[in-house]
Amino acid sequence: SASLEDVKTAVLGLLVILQTKLYTLPASHATRVYEMLVSHIQLHYKHSYTLPIASSIRLQAFDFLLLLRADSLHRLGLPNKDGVVRFSPYCVCDYMEPERGSEKKTSGPLSPPTGPPGPAPAGPAVRLGSVPYSLLFRVLLQCLKQESDWKVLKLVLGRLPESLRYKVLIFTSPCSVDQLCSALCSMLSGPKTLERLRGAPEGF
């Protein structure tokens, strides 16, 4: 439990870093931090981490990651405290083949985003970082199938509809809506759902 406290501190630090690096160059920093966060949550489900502190780590990670939004130009952003989304000039939600690297070039400044813009690109060529939603999407499927803490599952179920409104997140990387529907149906009809959940409301 003591070591998990250190892990929790590290994860919180990564969330803060991602919130900053999403809007700064090099964009590969945001890509790497995002991948680290998603990989860490995957390990929770792989090794069945069920301690309360592990659940709190997942809760905080999902609470942040499910706020990711994308505009029509595929640029990622996060809402501010007033709910207004600021889109990044440097990070996009497109999935890119590994051989192309985590970044790609664009020939010049991008068109203005639909929300308040981030800082304008400084040079004639900007390297865009790929932060594909499919990585998070796979972890969300694991959550629906394996999550043991009701608070975490409730958060994910509550945030998913709003995330799905931003269709560009889903359609720019390999996210299977069929698998999502299947996971939701299995969660509702499967007898093991109630068996594994802690803290579920009576009558769920």
Results as ranks from 00 to 15, higher is better:
P117Y: 10
Y49C: 03
E162F: 11
P161K: 13
G83Q: 06
L164M: 06
P26H: 05
R75I: 01
S1L: 07
P201W: 05
L76E: 02
S173N: 04
V177A: 06
L22D: 01
R32E: 04
T114M: 15
P26L: 01
K145L: 12
P132H: 06
E103N: 13
Q142H: 09
V33D: 00
T193K: 06
V11R: 01
L197K: 02
V33K: 00
S107L: 12
F204H: 04
T106D: 13
Q42I: 08
V177L: 14
L184D: 01
T31V: 11
E103F: 13
R138K: 12
Y90D: 04
P191C: 13
L67W: 09
L128W: 12
L197S: 03
V152D: 01
R165T: 08
E97V: 13
L197Q: 03
S163D: 01
R75L: 03
K46D: 13
V152T: 05
A10L: 00
V156Q: 01
L25G: 15
V85Q: 06
Q146R: 12
R86C: 07
G118R: 15
G115D: 11
L136I: 11
L194S: 07
T193N: 07
S176R: 09
T20Y: 07
C91W: 02
V139Y: 01
S182T: 12
M36W: 02
Y23W: 06
C91Y: 11
L184V: 09
L155P: 03
K105F: 14
P201V: 06
S186F: 07
L194P: 06
A30N: 02
R165E: 06
V84G: 12
V7A: 04
K151D: 15
S1E: 15
L12A: 15
P116Q: 11
I41E: 00
L68D: 02
L37Q: 00
P201I: 05
A27G: 09
H47Y: 10
K46R: 11
V16P: 15
Y95V: 12
L51N: 07
G108T: 13
M36H: 03
S88K: 02
V38M: 09
R165S: 10
L14G: 04
V92N: 07
Y133K: 03
S28K: 11
G203I: 04
T24Y: 08
L153T: 02
S56L: 12
L68F: 08
F87H: 06
R198H: 11
A200C: 14
E5H: 08
